[in-house]
Amino acid sequence: MISMLQPLWWFALPLLALPLWWHMRRRERTKTEALATARFLPQAAPQQQRVPQWIDRLLLLLRLLLLLNLIAWLAVTVFPWRGDTVLVHENLGRDVVARESAAAGMASASVVVLPPDPLAWLEAHRFEFRRNARLLILAPGLPMPARRPEPGLALTIRVLPPAGTEPLRPAVRHLVLATTGEREPQWRAMIAAFAAAGERHEIAQAPTPETELVIWDRPGDPPAGWRAPLWWRTSAPPAGAMAVASAGIRLAVADTSQGRSWSSPDWPAQDPDKARAIYEAWRQLAFEPAPYRMPSAEFRASGSATAPEARPSAWLALSMLALFILERVLAHARRN
């Protein structure tokens, strides 16, 4: 209840007229004595006019700022103004947004383009929403957060396919296979086993800018102009290589001028289990982890969203203290 009444403090802004009225009504009280020659002058009521000085204007300004700061501190400067809102992904069509909004009973809600991190945006702007506001997020998918979201508002997340998208195709990995004729069938059989993970592999004779892996299974060194992010070598590891064990595969890893080099006695694989272990080592050490997508979910409203409104910003309290000290110093200097 207190947090709901806090914005009403802004209606106290007319109190700023009090310092103005006080400064206009203030008059100097001085002791007056009649002169001996005053009897020759016509009688008239004494009038006094005080000329304001610069310190008076500064003191008036400080008192106005102090009162304004106090009102802002009481109102916490946050006024919940947002109602029902639909956050949509930019790739969704208008017809899809209209259909889903109507199905959720939010046809008249305002539409906002989905920010890069919707959950973090809601956490930072949740005090802008009224207590009874409802939120609907329409997106192809959101990264799963580390902990369960607690928006405090009625929130519905619906995962929808973007408009005009084609069915997902397997990822393509560009490889270069440089080996002997005797061992090439073994390497190709191992690469074909990788397709069970839902990927396609294109094998070329020389590296291109898209090449991710070069398999060098020949005697001698590769051409100096070949470059790739990752190399698989069957030769002895270079000096300074670091021993690594991943997914049951023994590796010697070293960074060279041509790319990162992996040397292992475990390839090419002779059976599917060994091929699966090699692929797992490749995925864990070379591929960026794919984020886990958040499914559709609903969150009920709770009272926790408006509780932090009772905590004013620290800078408001510090500025009010500084204004009060300056006002007292100037008031004392004015009297003396």
Rank of each mutant, 00 (worst) to 15 (best):
G248R: 08
H89C: 03
V113A: 11
L60R: 04
S263Y: 08
A286C: 12
I157F: 00
I249F: 02
R260H: 06
A301I: 10
V329C: 00
S296C: 09
E128G: 13
F287S: 13
A34V: 09
G83I: 09
A163Y: 15
A171P: 00
L16V: 09
R293I: 13
D95I: 03
R25D: 05
V176Q: 10
E288I: 06
P115H: 09
P291G: 04
A107S: 14
E28F: 00
G259T: 01
V253D: 11
Q186F: 04
L114I: 14
L13I: 08
E166S: 05
I55G: 01
S313A: 15
F287G: 02
A241Y: 06
A314D: 15
L160A: 10
P219E: 15
A98V: 09
P295S: 10
R50V: 09
E128N: 15
Y292F: 10
E28H: 02
I325Q: 00
L119V: 13
L65S: 13
T180V: 05
R94W: 11
A236L: 14
L87F: 15
A154N: 14
E202W: 09
S263G: 11
K274G: 10
W187C: 06
A314N: 12
A206D: 07
R126H: 09
R39M: 03
E128L: 15
L59Y: 09
G248A: 06
L177W: 04
G248E: 03
S264K: 08
L62Q: 05
L58Q: 11
V111T: 13
R57F: 15
P268Q: 01
A275C: 08
L321V: 06
L285E: 11
P238V: 07
A307N: 05
H89R: 01
A45M: 10
S296P: 05
